[in-house]
Simulated scan of single mutants.
Amino acid sequence: MSEQRFIIEMGMGNDQYGQDYTKAAARAIEDAIRHSAIPMFDATGLSHEDMRVQVTVGVQQPDRVDCAALAAKLPRGRATVRAVEGGLDVENPDTGKILVIASAAVEAFLPKQSD
């Protein structure tokens, strides 16, 4: 059975002091899902386990993101997270420390419902 995307949310997060790409990505994901409410599960009787959640996070150093830890924190559905090159690293000219900025797209899919 094919799937149908029914939601996409975008978010942004950062880590200002620790140069932690996973923390910045987690905040971007949280920002995206914080804006969503999906009442159709209660209205239709569908299970959250029927939902596949696909998250893409963009950071300058994708290899420094713990995608498994991020997927484990998602509250609903069968989640996967992948990190790609994106986001921003901004250097503080006074200290040389890097501010990590991540962006996230959270997509949710359900099996295609009959017409």
Rank of each mutant, 00 (worst) to 15 (best):
1 M>A: 11
1 M>F: 08
4 Q>A: 13
5 R>E: 15
5 R>C: 14
6 F>V: 15
9 E>C: 12
14 N>A: 12
16 Q>C: 08
20 D>W: 00
25 A>M: 05
26 A>C: 01
27 R>I: 00
28 A>V: 07
29 I>V: 14
29 I>P: 04
30 E>M: 09
32 A>T: 02
32 A>M: 00
32 A>N: 01
33 I>P: 00
35 H>S: 10
36 S>C: 13
38 I>R: 06
39 P>N: 01
40 M>S: 14
40 M>E: 12
43 A>V: 13
43 A>M: 10
44 T>L: 15
45 G>N: 00
45 G>Y: 05
47 S>C: 03
48 H>L: 12
48 H>T: 10
49 E>N: 08
52 R>C: 04
53 V>P: 02
53 V>Q: 04
55 V>G: 11
57 V>F: 01
57 V>W: 03
58 G>S: 06
59 V>H: 11
59 V>Y: 10
60 Q>N: 10
62 P>G: 08
62 P>S: 08
64 R>T: 00
65 V>W: 02
66 D>E: 06
67 C>E: 15
68 A>S: 05
68 A>Q: 09
69 A>W: 06
70 L>C: 01
71 A>W: 00
72 A>Y: 05
72 A>V: 02
73 K>W: 05
75 P>D: 04
77 G>I: 04
78 R>L: 07
79 A>L: 08
79 A>H: 00
79 A>S: 10
81 V>I: 06
83 A>F: 10
83 A>P: 08
83 A>Y: 14
84 V>F: 11
85 E>N: 13
86 G>S: 06
87 G>A: 08
87 G>Y: 05
90 V>H: 08
91 E>N: 07
91 E>M: 13
93 P>A: 04
93 P>T: 08
94 D>L: 15
94 D>M: 12
96 G>R: 04
98 I>M: 05
98 I>G: 01
100 V>P: 04
100 V>T: 09
100 V>H: 06
101 I>C: 13
101 I>S: 04
103 S>Y: 07
104 A>R: 09
105 A>R: 02
106 V>L: 05
107 E>Q: 15
109 F>I: 10
109 F>C: 09
110 L>T: 08
110 L>W: 01
111 P>N: 09
111 P>K: 07
114 S>I: 13
114 S>D: 15
